[in-house]
């Protein structure tokens, strides 16, 4: 007990000194009385019997996953960086439709390849609409678009557990305009990587 409190006091003194040194830049150094160091602890061997030897560890070598052949910048990037230059591209839909069009299939095929390359990724598929429908019904339509994209990916062998869907209705247009060019970009399923 005595020993421990002495050690603690020393630690406290050291802390105070370190703190004083850290914030003492503006004031000139001042000689301070330093308490004497505590007496050295008595050798443990004289007071305490030696403990029994610890059990010998029995260890197997851990299997280290194979190193990537090439440095993979995507695998090492942050989620935000990945999503900023996402290899998973959005797919677009016709007006009032949640059918996967032919050109969207090609995009989803590539997205499926990306998801197979990075099997740890989980993805949220967001369904979005253009502004022409009502805000209420577009929640249903957006959901249907997200689920259509998800179903297509699942049909290509991507585990459904990795793909969540969410509908944003018409709340988050990608293009703020009010013409067909903007609408076409807003009717989309957007892929967000949420874990890697």
């Amino acid at each position: 007990m005595v020993m421990r409190s002495a050690v603690a006091r020393t630690a406290l003194v050291v802390l105070v000194l370190v703190a004083a040194a850290a914030c003492g830049k503006k004031t000139p150094p001042v000689a301070r009385a330093v308490p004497p160091p505590p007496p050295p602890p008595p050798p443990a061997s004289t007071a305490v019997p030696r403990p029994p030897a610890p059990p010998t560890p029995v260890a197997e070598p851990t299997v280290v996953p194979p190193e990537p052949v090439r440095d993979d910048s995507i695998a090492s990037a942050s989620l935000d960086d990945i999503n900023r230059n996402s290899p998973l591209k959005p797919v677009f839909f016709e007006y009032d439709s949640s059918e996967i069009a032919d050109d969207a299939r090609g995009v989803l095929d590539a997205n499926a390849a990306g998801l197979k390359k990075y099997p740890a990724w989980t993805v949220t598929i967001e369904g979005h609409c253009d502004e022409r429908g009502t805000p209420e019904y577009n929640l249903a339509l957006g959901e249907r678009r997200a689920v259509a994209a998800r179903a297509y990916l699942v049909s290509l062998g991507i585990s459904a557990d990795r793909l969540r869907t969410v509908s944003y209705g018409k709340e988050f247009p990608f293009e703020p305009g009010h013409d067909e060019a903007a609408y076409a970009k807003n009717r989309r399923a957007h892929f967000v990587i949420t874990a890697k």
């Binding site: 929640l139 249903a140 959901e143 249907r144 689920v147 998800r150 869907t165």
Partner: peptide
């Protein structure tokens, strides 16, 4: 309220 809790994709 409307929910997809039983069927993803269908409220």
């Amino acid at each position: 309220f409307a929910s997809t809790r039983d069927h993803p994709g269908n409220f």
